[in-house]
């Protein structure tokens, strides 16, 4: 008995030490790596919110998932911390958007020791739009040869394809539950089609096609539904506005009678408000769904509800 007790005690000590060493990610979600050994659920890390949401919907209760970018944080400039990398070492599946969204992915994947990790690029196989080139981005383009518009998930049809890629990654990692993942995917694939139809039906009858947005995030959405986006900023949202660009946008808004200037939740609305005040327009939020805040998550919002809100905002702006 004594032996067993002391064994148990030392085991507990080791476990607690290990637990103490395991860095918890700064996300509100559960840390999958801690449970992976016991529950045999797939341990999944998603690079930011849409990836997290899609993976959660496909994986259901067969996976333990964590979102790497904390709620309410702008993902463009985010970089993983040392504890995020440690977590990836223990994960089974890592899901990222790709298409130049996560500039840190290549470096991190190269440095990982975890040979069993399945890294799934959700945008794989999709036709990508070219990133728009202004002077600043041309400088960056010299470093990275390709420059794509990463905001693939804002087109429901492309988002469906992303979810399919995620599903395939899950099946590769956990073939036993293939039917479960397939069934979930089928269910949400229908949801994506429904959403796509709603967008088509609503937007095709509206007279205006021009939207002024905070940053160039809506290229895929606009391409799908025949809209035209005029971004205040380029592909990355936060930099100081340049006055010549603002003047052009004001001129455009006046000529095309734009009534609503869109801003984003994770970016300061100051510039959008300034432009709106100048031309006597209103501002409204158009969510690029790069991350939801804690409040939105608590209220049960997800990709679909955020997209439907976007549709309402677009409808009001284009009438």
């Amino acid at each position: 008995m004594k032996k067993i007790a002391s064994l148990l005690l030392s085991l507990m000590l080791v476990i607690s030490l290990l637990g103490g060493c395991t860095p918890t990610p700064s996300t509100p979600s559960v840390n999958p790596s801690e449970n992976s050994g016991i529950t045999e659920k797939l341990s999944v890390y998603a690079s930011f919110y849409p990836m997290y949401d899609f993976a959660l919907k496909v994986g259901g209760d067969k996976i333990e998932i964590a979102n790497m970018v904390p709620a309410g944080t702008e993902p463009h400039d985010w970089e993983p911390t040392a504890s995020d990398i440690t977590n990836l070492e223990k994960a089974d599946v890592f899901i990222y958007n790709g298409a130049d969204m996560e500039h840190w992915v290549d470096k991190v994947l190269e440095s990982l020791q975890n040979k069993d990790l399945i890294a799934a690029e959700a945008s794989q196989g999709l036709t990508l739009l070219e990133g728009h080139h202004d002077e600043e981005e041309d400088e960056n383009a010299e470093e990275e040869e390709e420059h794509h518009d990463p905001h693939v998930w804002l087109s429901p049809i492309k988002a469906k394809r992303e979810m399919e890629n995620i599903k395939n990654a899950f099946i590769q990692a956990d073939a036993d539950n293939k039917d479960y993942y397939e069934a979930n995917y089928e269910k949400y694939a229908a949801e994506f089609d429904k959403l796509d139809k709603e967008f088509k039906d609503t937007l095709s009858v509206l007279p205006n096609k021009d939207i002024i947005v905070a940053h160039q995030a809506f290229g895929y959405l606009c391409a799908d539904y025949g809209l035209n986006q005029i971004p205040i900023e380029g592909l990355s949202p936060d930099s100081e506005p340049d006055p010549a660009r603002m003047a052009e946008i004001i001129k455009f808004a006046k000529e095309h009678n734009v009534k609503i200037i869109f801003f984003e939740e994770l970016v300061s609305p100051k510039v959008a408000e300034t432009i709106a005040n100048t031309i006597g327009a209103k501002t409204d939020m158009l969510n690029p769904i790069e991350g939801l805040s804690d409040e939105q998550l608590a209220a049960g919002d997800d990709y679909f509800s955020a997209m439907r809100q976007n549709l309402q905002s677009l409808k009001a702006a284009l009438q």
Binding site: P241, S268, D294
Partner: peptide, 20 residues
């Protein structure tokens, strides 16, 4: 600070975006 977005909007000013 719960809402990082809110924080950002107070951090950075710009001379070309000034409210009343």
């Amino acid at each position: 600070v719960k809402n990082a977005a809110n924080f950002n909007s107070f951090l950075f000013g710009s001379i070309v975006a000034i409210s009343d």
